[in-house]
Measured scan of single mutants.
Amino acid sequence: KRPMNAFMVWSRGQRRKMALENPKMHNSEISKRLGADWKLLTDAEKRPFIDEAKRLRAVHMKEYPDYK
């Protein structure tokens, strides 16, 4: 299984929150909104998620060195 990218790290928490706030919203609509919201974030706002994704990638490479 591939490590999560920055968007996936960020959206994991946001998806739960949005689903709780909008229980009747379909998952596909939540995904569209999350994508739009992510694009509106500044680089500074994205930085912690980018850093976490880099950390996850490094751990994955160490655990699965032959993964392609």
Rank of each mutant, 00 (worst) to 15 (best):
K24D: 15
H60Q: 13
K46A: 01
R47C: 06
L56R: 04
V9D: 05
L56H: 05
E29W: 00
M61P: 10
R33D: 01
K68Q: 13
D43C: 06
K24I: 12
D51K: 05
R2M: 13
D51Q: 08
L20R: 06
H60A: 13
H26G: 14
G13T: 15
F7W: 02
N5E: 11
K54S: 11
L41H: 01
R55G: 06
S31T: 10
W10A: 07
M18W: 10
W38K: 04
R2Q: 12
K17D: 05
M18Q: 00
E45Y: 03
R12S: 15
D37H: 09
N5V: 02
P3E: 15
A6S: 07
E52W: 01
D37M: 13
K32S: 11
R47D: 05
K39V: 06
W10Q: 01
E45V: 04
K46V: 04
L20H: 07
D66K: 08
A44I: 10
D66A: 12
R57V: 08
M8Q: 15
Y67E: 15
E29V: 02
L41W: 01
F7Q: 04
K17W: 02
Y67Q: 15
L56T: 10
R57Q: 11
R57L: 13
I30V: 06
A44S: 13
M18I: 14
K46D: 06
R57Y: 05
R47F: 04
R16L: 08
A19I: 06
T42F: 00
K62P: 12
A19L: 14
K39D: 09
K1L: 10
W10Y: 01
N22P: 03
E29T: 05
E63G: 09
A19K: 13
W10M: 03
S11M: 06
N5G: 07
D43L: 10
P48C: 00
A44D: 13
R55S: 08
L56D: 08
R33H: 10
D37F: 00
Y67T: 10
H26A: 15
S11E: 12
L56Q: 08
L34S: 02
P3H: 11
D37N: 11
I30H: 04
K68I: 03
A58N: 04
I30R: 02
N27E: 15
L40D: 11
F49I: 09
Y67S: 14
R16P: 12
F49M: 05
K1S: 07
L56Y: 02
V59K: 12
P65A: 11
D37Q: 14
N27G: 12
K1N: 10
M8A: 12
E45G: 03
S11Y: 03
Q14K: 04
P48T: 00
H26I: 01
L20V: 10
R16K: 10
M4E: 15
R2I: 14
D43Q: 06
K24N: 09
D37R: 09
F49C: 06
E21Q: 09
E21G: 05
L40V: 08
R12W: 11
E63S: 07
A6Y: 00
E29D: 05
M8D: 15
R2F: 04
W38Y: 01
M18H: 07
W10F: 07
D43T: 10
L40W: 01
R47W: 05
S28K: 07
A6R: 00
Q14I: 09
P48A: 03
D43W: 07
M18Y: 10
K17P: 02
K39R: 07
L56A: 07
A58P: 03
A19V: 13
S28Q: 09
R57F: 13
I50K: 10
D51C: 04
V9N: 02
V9G: 02
E45W: 00
R12F: 08
K68Y: 02
P65T: 14
W38S: 05
H26Q: 14
G35S: 15
F49E: 05
Y64M: 14
F7K: 01
H26K: 14
K46S: 02
T42H: 06
K24H: 11
A53W: 00
Y64N: 15
K62Q: 08
R2V: 13
K68V: 08
L56V: 07
N27M: 10
Y64H: 14
M4T: 10
L56K: 05
R47P: 03
M4L: 14
D37Y: 07
T42I: 03
D66N: 10
S28E: 15
L40A: 13
R12D: 15
R2W: 06
M61Q: 13
A6D: 03
R16T: 13
E45D: 07
P65V: 10
M8I: 10
A44Q: 10
I50S: 06
P65Q: 12
H60F: 02
M4A: 10
K39F: 09
W10I: 02
R16W: 06
M25S: 06
V9E: 05
K24E: 15
P65G: 12
N5A: 03
R47G: 08
E45N: 02
I30S: 00
A53S: 09
E63L: 06
L56F: 06
V59Y: 12
L20I: 09
N27Q: 11
L20T: 11
P48I: 02
E21N: 12
F7R: 01
